[in-house]
Computed example of a mutant assay.
Amino acid sequence: MAASGVLTRLARFDPHVAGTFPLGLAVPGSDIDVLCHAPDAQVFAEALWETCRDFEHFAMWQWQKAARPVVAAFSVAGTPFEVFGQALPVQEQHGWRHFAVEARLLELGGEGLRAAVMTARRAGAKTEPAFAQVLGLEGDPYRAMLALADRDDEELKRILKRRGSPGG
C-alpha cells in the first residue's frame, strides 16, 4: 500500500484505507478501498486524473445518486484499488461506518467470528453480506450493518451471543 504512493498523492483529501485488507478479510480479487473527503467533486476528479491516471486499468466515474460521489479504480503492481470521494468527512461516510463496526465486531468476536466471516467470504459473499449472514441479520445487509454502527460494545456483545455467532 505505502509503495503505491496513493495516500500521499491524495493527502489533501484526508484518505483513509478501509475494507477487507486492514480487517484481515481479503480474498483473491479483493481491492484496497481508499475513502476520501471530497467537498468539491470536480476538484477531486481532477486530482485523481492528475495523480492516478497512469496506474494500470485506470477508470473513473461519478455516481448519479444525490451525493454524487466520485470513484476511481486502478491497479498498482497487480493490486486493485478503489478510491471513493464524497463530500462527507470520511468518518461520516457509510463505507467508513461499515468498516468501523466490522473492526469492532471482529475485536469482540475474536478468531471464531473472523473464521466464520472468512468462510462466507471464500464462498463468494461480499463483506457486509458475510457479516450479516454470520450474525443472522435480516433484510438488506448493508443497512443492517450500518444500524449496528452506533451500538455500544455491550450491545454488540449481546448480538454476538444472541445469534450464537462464533466468538460470541
Rank of each mutant, 00 (worst) to 15 (best):
P69V: 00
P141D: 11
T79A: 10
L10E: 13
C52E: 13
R12P: 13
R104F: 02
P28A: 03
G29C: 11
L137E: 05
A132G: 08
V117C: 12
A73Q: 14
V27K: 02
L113S: 02
G29H: 05
L160A: 02
V34F: 07
L88T: 13
E50G: 10
E102Y: 04
G112M: 01
A47C: 14
K157E: 15
A125T: 09
K161S: 09
R122G: 11
P15D: 14
L25E: 12
H57G: 07
L88C: 10
P15G: 09
G19V: 11
D140G: 02
H98M: 06
E107H: 09
A18V: 15
T127D: 13
K161D: 14
P129A: 04
T119I: 08
Q62T: 11
R12N: 11
R53W: 09
A103E: 15
T8K: 11
G136F: 06
E92R: 12
F44E: 06
A66K: 05
A149D: 14
E107A: 12
P15M: 11
A132L: 08
F74R: 00
E92H: 13
A11Y: 09
W96G: 02
L146E: 15
V70N: 00
D33F: 04
G110T: 03
A123K: 07
Q42N: 08
A116T: 06
A41P: 15
A72P: 08
A38L: 05
L88D: 15
F81D: 10
P166Q: 01
V43M: 08
V71G: 05
G5D: 13
S165P: 08
V134I: 10
P141H: 01
A103Y: 01
L88M: 14
L48G: 01
E155L: 08
R143G: 13
V43G: 05
A115C: 10
D31P: 14
D33P: 06
E111I: 00
H94M: 12
A38Y: 05
G124H: 12
Q42K: 02
I32H: 04
G24H: 12
L160E: 05
H57K: 04
V27H: 07
L35W: 08
F21T: 14
A77T: 03
A87D: 15
H98Y: 06
A144D: 12
V83Q: 10
A72Y: 01
L48R: 00
L48Q: 04
E46G: 03
P22D: 13
K65D: 15
T119K: 11
H16C: 13
F58T: 01
R97Q: 11
P80W: 02
F131C: 07
G124I: 10
E111A: 04
